[in-house]
Design a protein around this nucleic acid. Sequence first.
DNA 1: GTCTATAGGATGATAGAC
DNA 2: GTCTATCATCCTATAGAC
Lengths: 189, 189
Amino acid sequence: MNVTTRKEEIIVVASRLFKEKGYTAVSMRDIAQAMGIKAASLYNHISGKQELLSTLVLRLAEDFTLGMEAVQQESGSQVSKIRKVIELHIDITVNASEALAALNNDWMHLEGEDLHRFVGMRETYEENFRSIIKKGIEAGELQPHHPEVILFSILSTLRTLYLWYQKRGKLDVNVLKKDMVAVLLRGIV
Amino acid sequence: MNVTTRKEEIIVVASRLFKEKGYTAVSMRDIAQAMGIKAASLYNHISGKQELLSTLVLRLAEDFTLGMEAVQQESGSQVSKIRKVIELHIDITVNASEALAALNNDWMHLEGEDLHRFVGMRETYEENFRSIIKKGIEAGELQPHHPEVILFSILSTLRTLYLWYQKRGKLDVNVLKKDMVAVLLRGIV
DNA sequence: GTCTATAGGATGATAGAC
DNA sequence: GTCTATCATCCTATAGAC
């Protein structure tokens, strides 16, 4: 049985093209050609180009939001929560590396309420992460560096993992999680 | 005296707009409007939109290439070379944070020989960095993690620093260097 | 150095036939 | 569900006046 609708096919093809050239540089004709149909036919399945972007970005943003909420409700140490966040990013990267490009690079082309919702979700996510780091410093679990530097250095690595995972992605996911946690938490020296 | 030519003004304005919306989403009309002139007038100073992109990207790529060559010729430990590379990225970020967006996100819109040159420079840069890390592991200066994980985690943080520097950039550059080196080398735990 | 006017083509999207 | 035909608009770039 085929559980993949035509609409979902279009979204998958679009995410691949968006990753390669960016949302603005991809035309509806490009997407249609990659599917072997004409551009006009796309509009039988989707309302327009914007819907493709907002579907890709908001879906993923919700995954991150739900994942972070789950981590926040755990009872372990702050370091174990950070480890869970790292694993969350790796899991999402492995499952949706194409769509992550849109989330990272093309979110600013969202319009109206979609843009507003995304920015809100991203801010909440960062604030939750920041809170874990601050508590970790207070509890003496983390080095007393500037919390923003810690937050940024971890988050920037995790956010761009998708760029690197496909190219060098021969590593087993569990090995990757183990090494990434070690490098990000304990450094390299 | 005014050392800023009209052409340089256009490049600066374009880099700001490219950072905000991406190369493809910025029109010549946008750039002209931001300068208070008409689009056609831009062509008296530049050959076209492509020239703006290739100037921004290749200029910076050369800065990184020269900086890396200087680091490679130093005589210190591998860790001290990594520290120098981190400082190189921070210096360039502070001086050209707008243009870094084009280098990171829009290099794929370069054409012909410019694209080829950029990709070559980037590969050489990564190869040099990888070589420092491998020597560091061999010499026992660095933890024996997968070299690619170390390379990626440092480089992804440094490459996206420009996104974060402007927002939270109240930190003194020397404090930032110190904290960034500490976090990237020694971790946070 | 900037303007108006415009060429020549690409773009997102719709209407209506099959 | 896909097609052809088309619209209205936007795009980069050029020509030529001032």
